[in-house]
């Protein structure tokens, strides 16, 4: 049960971090200078082409190592980075690449007139982002982001490979101790499935909320 809690914590943290990176990345890709755009293209391409498992291993070791080296170089003590923080950072980095693309697509789907109108009102870029772009892109972005959230919950299982204690590893250890492999893995699968189904239900509600005031999908056809 602690494992499940850890899994959810990581998934939540990673999705939030991913959203932040994604929003920044999407704006960088759309409005940034040429260098920023190219760098972001490299980032999203590489992250999306390499298996998550390899990325997790690479970032997990490289990340902790780099931070420690930087700290020692600056004269601080080495810190032991908690698995939770590292897990969130690694998965967030991976999620960021995917959500960059989702959010970029969603921003492009906003009718251009809305943004032009906001500019014509003399809104500052920050205000425009907060009042127009983010709310207007939400209905387009939610299905993709919901997918990413489901992927994030399932990707937390991969952290078991680097030895972080979450649901998958907890199950494996419990199964190893009791020798009841089938029962425990089956229970874990059911837990993950429940998590997915509950999130599906919640996402449906959120999507309905974000689409308020827009014609429903059936009418639009």
């Amino acid at each position: 049960m602690v494992g499940l809690l850890h899994s959810i914590e990581i998934a939540l943290g990673a999705t939030c971090l991913g959203l932040l990176i994604g929003t920044g990345g999407a704006f960088g890709k759309l409005y940034g200078g040429p260098v920023v755009r190219d760098l972001l293209a490299v980032y999203t391409t590489i992250v999306r082409a390499v298996p998550e498992l390899v990325l997790i291993l690479l970032l997990y070791y490289a990340g902790t190592d780099l931070i420690n080296q930087a700290l020692t170089a600056m004269g601080y003590q080495r810190v032991d980075i908690s698995g939770l923080a590292a897990g969130i950072a690694v998965l967030g980095f991976v999620q960021g690449a995917y959500s960059t693309e989702v959010i970029r697509g969603a921003i492009l789907a906003i009718p251009q007139g809305q943004i032009e109108a906001a500019r014509a009102y003399g809104m500052s870029p920050g205000l425009m982002l907060r009042r127009i772009t983010l709310p207007a892109m939400l209905p387009f972005a939610i299905p993709g982001l919901a997918n990413l959230w489901l992927i994030a919950t399932k990707d937390t299982a991969l952290l078991a490979v680097v030895g972080f204690y979450e649901l998958a590893l907890a199950t494996r250890q419990a199964a190893g101790v009791t020798k009841a492999y089938f029962t425990f893995f089956f229970a874990a699968a059911v837990l993950y499935l429940l998590l997915s189904l509950v999130s599906n239900f919640l996402i449906g509600r959120v999507e309905a909320w974000s689409r308020r005031g827009m014609p429903s999908l059936k009418e639009a056809r």
């Binding site: 299982a157 998958a168 199950t171 492999y181 893995f185 874990a188 699968a189 993950y192 998590l195």
Partner: peptide, 20 residues
């Protein structure tokens, strides 16, 4: 069910679970 559970768990369920 397949889309709602991690592949890692499915794999372990089959290998360790069924295998045992």
């Amino acid at each position: 069910v397949i889309r709602g559970t991690p592949l890692l768990i499915q794999l372990w369920l089959l290998y360790y679970g069924l295998g045992s």
